[in-house]
Design a protein around this nucleic acid. Structure first.
Lengths: 363, 363
DNA sequence: TAGCCGCTATGTATCGTTACATACGGGACG
DNA sequence: CGTCCCGTATGTAACGATACATAGCGGCTA
């Protein structure tokens, strides 16, 4: 472990001079600067961050805790956050709570011990006591994809009730009346709010609430979606449309529908949520509710920056709510659905890649 | 900023006693222990990690630098690493180099300043000078998904030449002779080795090397795959089979094939790499080369643990190479491909979800 | 020639925590 | 009754980097 003292000795100067070379190079004569820089590379010296931040209190680091790193939705959020904060000279410590309150708590505890200057978090439970504690201690917090109730905190979220309503209205307009909502962990307000939106749309359309069946999944993943698909098969009377709490669930459901010979959207219409890249490229291109993912991260990071810079007193908290947008594709719309049935538009002669041109596959 | 001194004053004891309560509670009388714990919660004290690690040199933290966090392949690798290291009481700082040597370098620099006790890295370029420097400074390194050339480092990788060979042999056996390899950035040895495997298989099968066309992508992403798909359409004479450097590219290619009326596998067979969850659930279930992702992370973490514990002198470096496995699905195999054409097995009466039972979709 | 100024270089206290050495007080034993 | 020892509590010196105050040195001016 080579320290400034070693560099100083090796260069024949004092530690102060070494420090000056690193932090205020113009205070040092050219000769000494060269000697010091030379010694640094020769000994392979690296700054000790712990000592630095102990000395001057600032860490220039913030924490980012996401709900589920396996969800492509959060990947774009992360990108938005990191790019914004790096531009401002802050480092980001990325944590994954994986939807588990315990992991979330231990993550935040760790971040606090690291003396982060702020925390961006998509909380499992936004009302948890220790989250409030964290705020009381003076650590700036911005809720990500979650709405702060009072005005005591900043938050950036997307209107999930609206999203649910968009998805459901779209299906109701096409005459569907037996809906299924494939939900996630009830602790996640996102998924319950989306369900509320679905119910609101049904009420508006005059469809009784008991026409909605809810399947609950323990997590928002492809695997959980497959399980939900299996359960879906057993529901009587058959639903004609399915709304999933996110695209991963929807892709899992879609997979099981295929495996069991259920046509989408022929037998059942399917709508996802998030509009991840794979949604467009799946077995049947997936209708989905698009969220401004990158902007979500970007905006949250900007709010945090303001709060960090303004200081705790002078800061005015903001609750920003963004709007989602429905993207209609084949999975919910007969008009787009041609190709998933036998009347596929390109399985005929007009294919630009006709069979006669390409050597046929032997076997 | 409340410190031990404040806690001590408030509890009417010395800082040493506070420290003892936290680190060796049995050395302290019950009365004082209670007074101290009480003061801690009352003041909202949190340990200052910087001071701690400055004091005793150890950080119990390692760095993990992945190539691309948007790739589901790495998500499982990360999981394997984190679970293994957390069990051993180490924290993990997760970094994303995004395939950019510059970002990689700045990440590692940061990790070094944080005094991490080791680094797990899937390097952009395993031969880079600064990676060697890092090792020279005594920081244990384990290469992830990359093979160490000499025996000077630990590494865990998967045999990419074999993977490429498996993919190509499978296609050649079915009579394909005009292949395309959709490659990634040439800097990534994984993608070049997979190509070598493809060529090796062609040589074995007596197919001349000029029957392989290579399309190069700037990154391994869904979007780049779409671009590759467009370029694919222009190639003459038509290839009959496509191997992609990873599944994200393959899904992008698949999407464009569909949009342009090219049947998969009818007109062109498609093979991906990684076997991510979405591979099985895509428009045409994707044949893919499966890698032991979780085990890769787990094994690498275990190696790092050993190196950290053994100390730099007593440690014996290991280069572990795992084997990939071909998973055949519809995208490359007429036998599996029924449903993607008009003779879909479930679009007929045997559907468990027959149209007569479900209310038909009105408009 | 004395005094002063500016330019560099250095000494030193400090951040918060911890381990170790030391101090203190009461009980037990000789 | 003195001594020793054990169980607690406390004082203190680090860890490495930094900012600030101060010191030295040469040259310039009055």
């Amino acid at each position: 472990m080579v320290s400034m003292k070693d560099v100083a000795r090796s260069a024949g100067v004092s530690v102060s001079t070494v420090s000056n070379v690193l932090n205020r190079p113009d205070y040092v004569s050219a000769a000494n600067r060269i000697k010091v820089l030379d010694a640094i590379t020769r000994l392979g010296y690296v700054r000790n961050n712990a000592a630095r931040q102990l000395r001057d209190g600032r860490t220039r680091t913030v924490g980012l805790v996401v709900l589920n790193i396996a969800n492509p939705f959060f990947i774009d959020v992360i990108r938005g956050v990191e790019e914004t904060l790096h531009r401002a000279g802050l480092s980001v410590i990325l944590c994954n709570s994986d939807g588990q309150p315990l992991r979330e708590e231990s993550n935040v505890e760790m971040l606090e011990e690291q003396q982060v200057e702020g925390v961006l978090i998509s909380p499992v439970d936004p009302g948890s006591a220790w989250l409030a504690k964290l705020g009381d201690r003076g650590v700036p917090i911005v809720l990500l994809d979650s709405r702060a109730d009072g005005s005591g905190q900043c938050s950036v979220s997307v209107d999930d009730v609206l999203g649910g309503r968009l998805a459901a209205s779209h299906l109701l307009e096409q005459g569907h009346e037996r809906l299924v909502y494939v939900s996630g962990p009830p602790l996640l307000h996102q998924v319950t709010e989306r369900r509320e939106g679905v119910l609101a749309a049904m009420t508006e359309a005059g469809v009784p609430a008991d026409r909605l069946t809810v399947i609950e999944c323990s997590e928002l993943s492809f695997g959980a979606g497959c399980d939900a698909g299996e359960r879906l098969l057993g529901i009587r009377p058959r639903p004609t449309a399915v709304i999933c709490a996110n695209d991963l669930l929807a892709l899992g459901v879609l997979q099981v529908m295929f495996a069991n010979g259920v046509s989408v959207p022929g037998d059942v219409a399917l709508v996802g949520y998030d509009d991840i890249d794979f949604a467009a490229g799946s077995a049947v291109p997936l209708t989905s509710v698009r969220q401004p993912r990158y902007e979500l991260g970007q905006t949250a990071a900007t709010l945090l920056l303001h709060e960090v810079d303004d200081g705790p007193d002078e800061h005015e908290h903001q609750q920003i709510v963004m709007s989602p947008e429905l993207v209609v594709r084949a999975s919910s719309s007969p008009a787009h659905a041609g190709w998933s049935r036998s009347q596929s538009p390109w399985s005929r002669s007009q294919s630009p890649w006709s069979r006669s041109q390409s050597p046929s596959v032997r076997r």
